[in-house]
């Protein structure tokens, strides 16, 4: 049995209500009748039962909960991800949190209500609908979906009440809006989500847009930037001895307990690998550097502190310079320790 759709246009409310009453008598199910108008008429005005609606409440509630979740994430969780105390305030102080919670809850409720509206109405309508533009000029349209037989009687009812115009078409041309709108919104949500994620490419510097960021082009010259300027020749800094014509300017650090401890540590790190832990030239590298001298000999103890200092600093023969590894004071610590080695050995 083929379904048909009929649309009758009426220019006044009285005729419309009469038609509706007659249709009801014809046992046309309520859900098959739609009344369209350019101004809202309550069902009561039309003499119809209120249409069953999806209630708004669940949507609004869902919106409220969603907003609350976002707000709590912002006021409770994010401050704890990187806890920074400012102005003596706790991480989640109540008054500011209340503001954020309020705003997000309100926003969630509004968004939830709006989404509820869209879903209940199955917007956007992506199928052909029975409609006539004259409805927005004030005509009231009554659309009825009925089978062949009933359709004839509906047409009669329309005619009886002086319908301004009647359109009668095969219902197959007007499919019921199924879940296509859901697919539409899902697609839109995915696109929206992607659009939201796109900035992450920037914030994570995956895409680096060159921007005139003055902080990057600092006019200052960093520790390792730019050509290094040589130290002024012959000048003597205050913080340590410097070799002038092979002669140290000041005396070495005193061989204090602290200095020896530091010296030992440094010696074990830098020297022991060849010269051995006790200075006996039995370090693990001696097979490659058999000429590494024993440090407890008279020859070494006969050297001036300064000479040992220079050897460590400048290197000698196959021994590399340790200038890069040791500061001046550290070198003196090692010199002290090397001296102490002999005493310890005795």
């Amino acid at each position: 049995m083929a379904q048909e759709v009929l649309l009758g246009l009426f220019d006044n409310l009285e005729a419309t209500t009469a038609v509706l009453r007659d249709l009801e008598r014809q046992n046309i199910p309520d859900r098959n009748i739609e009344v369209m108008s350019n101004v809202p008429y309550a069902p009561k005005v039309l003499g119809r039962r209120p249409t069953r609606q999806w209630p708004f409440l669940p949507f609004v509630l869902a919106g409220v909960l969603g907003g609350l979740a976002i707000a709590l994430f912002i006021v409770v969780i994010t401050p704890r991800l990187y806890p920074i105390i400012v102005g003596g305030q706790p991480l989640t102080p109540f008054p500011p949190s209340a503001i954020i919670v309020f705003e997000f809850v309100a926003l969630g409720a509004m968004a939830g209500g709006f989404i509820g509206f869209l879903l209940q109405n199955r917007y956007p309508v992506l199928v052909r609908q029975m409609y006539d533009p004259r409805i927005s000029e004030g005509y009231i349209g009554v659309a009825v979906r009925a089978d062949d037989q009933a359709a004839d009687s509906v047409a009669d009812i329309f005619a009886a009440h002086n319908a301004h115009d009647v359109v009668r078409e095969d219902a197959a041309r007007y499919p019921v809006q199924s879940r296509r709108f859901l697919a539409f919104w899902a697609g839109l949500a995915v696109v929206g989500l992607l659009a939201l994620l796109a900035p992450l490419l920037l914030t994570y510097n995956i895409i680096d847009i060159p921007w005139f960021n003055q902080m990057r082009e600092s006019p200052s010259i960093g520790f390792q930037e730019g050509p290094r300027r040589a130290a002024p020749a012959e000048s003597i800094p205050i913080q340590g001895p410097v070799l002038i014509n092979g002669q140290p300017a000041t005396e070495p650090l005193p061989a204090s307990e602290e200095s020896l401890q530091r010296g030992q540590l440094l010696y074990e790190v830098n020297c022991a690998i060849c010269h051995g832990m006790q200075g006996n030239a039995d370090g693990s590298m001696t097979k490659y550097f058999p000429e590494a001298p024993v440090l407890t000999t008279d020859r070494v103890s006969g050297m001036a502190d300064q000479e040992i200092f220079m050897i460590i600093t400048l290197g000698r023969n196959r021994m590399p310079s340790l200038a890069e590894n040791l500061t001046v004071n550290e070198t003196w610590d090692v010199v002290n320790y090397v001296r102490a080695l002999r005493e310890a050995g005795q």
Partner: peptide, 8 residues
């Protein structure tokens, strides 16, 4: 001073 950034 290289210890201190120059503010942009």
């Amino acid at each position: 001073n290289p210890d201190v950034p120059v503010r942009g």
